[in-house]
């Protein structure tokens, strides 16, 4: 399957100012897939620590992290709906106050000593994954006057090969900042809803955490390598 440029953002999107000096200006060169593109790294349970999927626990120093506990789960599949099994998902996010633990984050919202904000897991045999975390806060950024990022969680996935590699962001339903955010709006209009998780009462854990579903569709693996002989 080819990259579907009708859903992915273009490189140059001037409302998102950092794109102007950082994106390729020449046409991409077509590349027929070879072994180089239809293979990719395979990670297994050996890279997953006990609490890597639980961001409410993996950063604890002396107490519970602050904020609204949530469950984020979903299915990773290809365009035909076939589950992508045992694939690595990595996530990172701001804390409940909208502050990243990253050393260069200058936002003056408070860090949370008990929240690290990164985790990872593998999908199971049905392509399903589940994280526990804290709902990330919105935060200001320097793109334009009074710019704020909607609440979001960064997701990184490998899928079956390097052609299916994806880094994206999961958003929350009904966020009033969507219409002002050039990163979200860089996605063609018909595909923006694919980045918004759904609140699900049936995923919500009584007395513990609200449930959000975020399904992810990666490019499938049906290319045949070319013959060079």
């Amino acid at each position: 399957m080819q990259r579907d440029w009708s859903v992915h953002p273009p490189y140059l999107y001037p409302d998102y100012k950092s794109t102007v000096l950082r994106t390729p200006t020449k046409l991409l060169v077509p590349l027929k897939h070879s072994l180089s593109e239809i293979t990719g790294p395979v990670y297994g349970h050996e890279v997953i620590g006990k609490y890597d999927h639980d961001l409410t626990k993996n950063g604890i120093k002396d107490g519970e992290p602050l904020g609204e506990r949530i469950v984020v789960c979903g299915k990773v599949m290809d365009e035909c709906g076939k589950p992508i099994r045992n694939t690595l998902i990595e996530i990172w996010q701001a804390n409940a106050a909208g502050r990243y633990i990253h050393k260069v984050d200058q936002h003056n919202a408070p860090p949370d000593p008990n929240f690290f904000g990164a985790g990872r897991c593998l999908t199971d045999d049905e392509g399903n994954y589940k994280f526990y975390t804290i709902k990330p806060g919105a935060y200001p950024w320097g793109n334009h006057y009074n710019a704020w990022r909607p609440n979001h969680i960064h997701f990184s996935l490998f899928g079956n090969n390097i052609a299916s590699r994806l880094i994206t962001q999961m958003y929350f339903p009904g966020d009033p900042l969507f219409e002002f955010d050039p990163i979200f709006n860089g996605v063609p209009a018909k595909a923006r809803s694919l980045l918004i998780s759904k609140f699900k009462l049936e995923l919500t854990e009584p007395g513990f955490a609200l449930g959000y579903e975020f399904n992810i569709v990666l490019r499938g693996n049906n290319e045949t390598p070319f013959e060079t002989k």
Binding site: E79, E90, W92, H102, H154, I167, Q169, V217
Partner: peptide, 28 residues
């Protein structure tokens, strides 16, 4: 067919999640 999930920027703060040891965060 299902639509591919759109890409988004990795942003400036990926290091503690994706390259934590290189940037000396307490995560493998």
């Amino acid at each position: 067919k299902l639509l591919q999930t759109p890409s988004q920027t990795a942003g400036p703060f990926f290091a503690y999640g994706l390259t934590p040891e290189q940037y000396q965060y307490d995560f493998t």
